[in-house]
């Protein structure tokens, strides 16, 4: 309860803090239920949904989406957003193919480093120049898209001589496609970071209550920079995985992933207000999206209508998970 005699003039302080009990059931159970329900629905619509071939398609898509969504998750956890993942993915994909030709296997680490650097710049614009993340990343995303188009206005095919290198992603290990293993490795990385490292835990503190975190001595600047670096990493890795998978780079491939990565994070139960949710939520969210995308195709829903449905799904998920006690006024 707010103090009775705080002398404050506002109405909303009283309303916003009156006994708000959180939903006791974690959002993750809703997400899982939704996933199961969708699978059942689509299977009823078309029994081929559960075929090995189709599951493989879903798996590939989910793997890539998971990686970029896991990156995006960090910026959302901290209370911001990264709208530059699309541009970064596009740029990384063409850069990767170009570098493959020039420096072979070194293309992998260089591209990751570039992605990390971009993430850092996003964080720096927020922490040093103090521009809100959604405008800053909107701007950097635009710049990255144009950089991608500058590097290569048209899709560029990977050089045949380097196909062997692409097996890093396209190959199998003990029968499991590397693509899935990489996604799994990314999941483990993000999960462990968030759950078992101090800086990962700080992302939650900062996202949950930034003022308290600051007063308790947490390094706000460092934590935020880290979150955006992680997002850059996710986008960069996903782009590399995608380029290998498609044997080429495309300066426009990233655009779709802005919406999809945010959707995966939010649908999985991570609130836009930050401070709740996590890697498991995001994987489930990515699966839900992959299942929806694939399922709608298999069942015959018009390709363009799907975008509308996705938009609706996001609005509903946000409406359900947004923590309204956090912002006295919703802007």
């Amino acid at each position: 309860m707010t103090a009775p005699d705080s002398g404050s003039a506002t109405i909303t302080q009283e309303k916003a803090t009156v006994g708000h009990k959180r939903l006791q059931i974690p959002a993750i159970y809703f997400a899982l239920t939704l996933l199961v329900v969708l699978v059942i629905l689509f299977t009823l619509g078309n029994q081929n949904f559960l075929s090995a071939y189709n599951l493989n398609t879903i798996g590939n898509y989910a793997a890539i989406l998971s990686v970029v969504a896991l990156g995006q998750m960090n910026t959302i956890l901290i209370g911001g957003i990264d709208l530059s993942v699309g541009g970064l993915m596009s740029f990384t994909s063409v850069l990767f193919v170009v570098l493959l030709q020039l420096i072979g296997v070194w293309a992998f680490p260089i591209c990751i480093l570039v992605a990390l650097a971009v993430g850092y710049v996003n964080g720096a614009i927020l922490t040093r120049i103090k521009i809100p993340s959604f405008i800053a990343t909107l701007g950097t995303g635009g710049i990255l898209t144009s950089l991608a188009l500058l590097v290569s206005p048209l899709p560029v095919v990977a050089p045949g001589s380097k196909y062997g290198l692409l097996d890093l992603v396209n190959g199998n290990l003990l029968g499991i496609p590397n693509l899935l293993l990489l996604a799994l490795a990314a999941f483990v990385l993000f999960y462990v970071t968030l759950r078992f490292t101090k800086i990962g835990r700080n992302i939650y503190y900062v996202g949950s209550n930034i003022k308290m975190s600051w007063m308790s001595g947490i390094d706000i600047v460092g934590t935020r920079n880290f979150a955006f670096v992680l997002s850059g990493f996710g986008a960069g890795l996903a782009a590399i995985m995608l380029s290998c998978n498609q044997f080429g780079g495309d300066p426009t491939l990233g655009n779709v992933y802005i919406l999809q990565s945010i959707a995966a994070v939010v649908v999985g139960g991570t609130a836009l207000t930050g401070g709740t949710g996590g890697a498991v939520n995001t994987i489930i969210g990515a699966l839900i999206l992959a299942v929806m995308e694939n399922g709608m195709n298999v069942v015959g829903v018009d390709a363009y209508f799907q975008q509308s449905i996705l938009g609706l799904v996001i609005i509903i998920s946000v409406a359900l998970t947004f923590d309204r006690t956090k912002t006295a006024m919703i802007k």
Binding site: R22, Y205, S208, N209, S213, M215, G217, I218, G275
Partner: peptide
């Protein structure tokens, strides 16, 4: 504040809901 905390100064704020706790997180956290 980070220096103060490192040196060993604590601060219990007047407004514990908005400044003292991460309400959406557990007691342990």
């Amino acid at each position: 504040p980070s220096e103060a905390v490192r040196a060993g100064i604590g601060h219990i704020p007047i407004d514990r809901r908005s400044d003292g706790l991460a309400l959406g997180m557990t007691i342990a956290e």
